[in-house]
Simulated assay, not measured.
Amino acid sequence: MTIKEIQEEIVDEFSMFDDWMQRYEYIIELGKNLPLIADQYKIEENLIKGCQSKVWVHAEEKNGSVVFTADSDAILTKGIIAILVRAFSNQSPKAILDADTDFIDAIGLKEHLSPTRANGLVSMIKQIKMYALAFQAKA
């Protein structure tokens, strides 16, 4: 699936919920199902700067695609990074760099987060794009 198709799938899933309490519960559920990052990658250099809670993102290149793993010490933040990992993992660096993040606004996520969490979300996206840029430069 393309990033756009995955993002549309996420938007469709969020549209099934009537209110934000249900959406928060869904985000938390997504976080619980996030494949865990290996402990060896829970290191300072994989921490996202600008996040209130601790968020680790690790990326590696496999067969021309960038594969992300992540974790957070905060349950809601873990759900947010789970959404981003789902949208961007197993895609080419170019596809990640070219992808927009309009789906975040389409599900209303940014407007329903505290300012510090919204900044953290922006920092997570920025880091994902930086990893893609690094892998593209290596290619």
Results as ranks from 00 to 15, higher is better:
residue 14 F to E: 00
residue 109 L to T: 11
residue 14 F to I: 03
residue 92 S to Y: 00
residue 117 R to S: 12
residue 80 I to V: 12
residue 95 A to T: 05
residue 3 I to P: 02
residue 102 D to M: 06
residue 76 L to M: 15
residue 74 A to R: 02
residue 74 A to W: 07
residue 113 L to P: 10
residue 97 L to A: 03
residue 10 I to D: 03
residue 23 R to C: 06
residue 32 K to Y: 12
residue 27 I to Q: 11
residue 57 V to M: 00
residue 45 E to C: 06
residue 17 F to D: 03
residue 95 A to V: 01
residue 27 I to H: 00
residue 120 G to N: 06
residue 40 Q to M: 13
residue 94 K to L: 07
residue 101 T to E: 15
residue 51 C to Q: 08
residue 138 K to I: 04
residue 52 Q to C: 06
residue 137 A to V: 10
residue 54 K to R: 11
residue 43 I to H: 08
residue 131 Y to W: 05
residue 46 N to Y: 06
residue 48 I to E: 02
residue 121 L to A: 03
residue 89 S to L: 02
residue 70 A to L: 04
residue 107 I to T: 04
residue 33 N to G: 13
residue 20 W to H: 11
residue 87 A to Y: 05
residue 136 Q to I: 00
residue 24 Y to R: 13
residue 3 I to S: 07
residue 98 D to A: 15
residue 27 I to Y: 04
residue 38 A to L: 12
residue 8 E to T: 05
residue 130 M to K: 11
residue 15 S to W: 03
residue 129 K to T: 00
residue 62 K to F: 09
residue 97 L to T: 01
residue 74 A to P: 09
residue 13 E to S: 05
residue 61 E to K: 06
residue 57 V to P: 02
residue 52 Q to P: 10
residue 78 K to E: 09
residue 86 R to F: 08
residue 122 V to T: 12
residue 10 I to C: 05
residue 42 K to E: 11
residue 23 R to I: 02
residue 36 L to Y: 02
residue 87 A to P: 12
residue 2 T to E: 08
residue 5 E to S: 10
residue 10 I to M: 09
residue 38 A to S: 13
residue 71 D to M: 05
residue 118 A to K: 09
residue 70 A to E: 12
residue 47 L to I: 11
residue 117 R to A: 14
